[in-house]
Amino acid sequence: MSDAQLKNLEEIFEQRIANDEKIEPKDWMPEKYRKTHIRQISQHAHSEIVGMLPEGNWITRAPSLRRKVALLAKVQDEAGHGLYLYSACETLGISRDELYEQLHSGKAKYSSIFNYPTVTWADMGAIGWLVDGAAIINQVPLCNTSYGPYARAMIRVCKEESFHQRQGFEIMMTLCNGTEAQKQMAQDALNRWWWPSLMMLGPVDAESVHTEQSMKWKLKRKTNDELRQQFIDQTVPQADILGLTVPDPDLKWNEETGHYDFGEINWDEFWQVVKGHGPCNKERMNARVGAWEKGTWVRDAAMAYAEKQQNKKENPAKAV
């Protein structure tokens, strides 16, 4: 293909997206589009399955049967969401095993918030309320993204996720209406998860490398800073209802802008965690790699069995 032909194809392609047409797996697409999508969708999928670990940490210790089944169902949903997203990614010509390989080798990233430890039960509340809250802000616009399989996966994810944030907030609410010890537990969880949740929405726009291109392809509809502001604006009143204090002395309603002003985010900490030096990076990776390696013989056995059954079907005489 000549450069001119390629340029023409790219123009048609960009025009289709601008016209709100969806791109489907077998359609022609620029290599960069494919690569960017593999990166973003897989990163998203990895975040779901690594995200199972901090919450999975409390399944055996959930304080009531009602909380236990809700938490189990939530962590199970995350496995499901990982699965939908890996499947969407596979339509771009890469296998789930290859994607795992990228995760396990450290080549692929996942949301750095899951590298923080879940220390108390209140963290289950804070994660549902804040982390899922931030995730929803990120995810809802993606239901309308340009790549068909990703958009469809996100529609399913968002539909299922609607209970996650509610169950988190309900946990917080119960704690805040409880004993002094429970209120303290809730406040402590908010103190530890507030800033990482703000960081979760990504670096400030000036340092975000992918934003412009991602906007064009509808991988992003708003910038990181806009999303962060939206998150703060909607979450602070919720903290007020809970009677909790957001751990930011500079947080203040700004009548003029109609938004909350907030304090400086510690980006050094963010980059430290992204680069693999957060409190739980190693534990999370060991858990993922461990589960995968411990499962090899199981997956192999299932394949061997399937082949034997197939052979029996095709050569009934030879079967013993």
Binding site: L53, G290, V298
Partner: peptide, 11 residues
């Protein structure tokens, strides 16, 4: 939950 041999078996 989260430690099985595949996502499908976990679910």
């Amino acid at each position: 939950c989260g430690h099985g041999p595949s996502l499908e078996t976990d679910i």
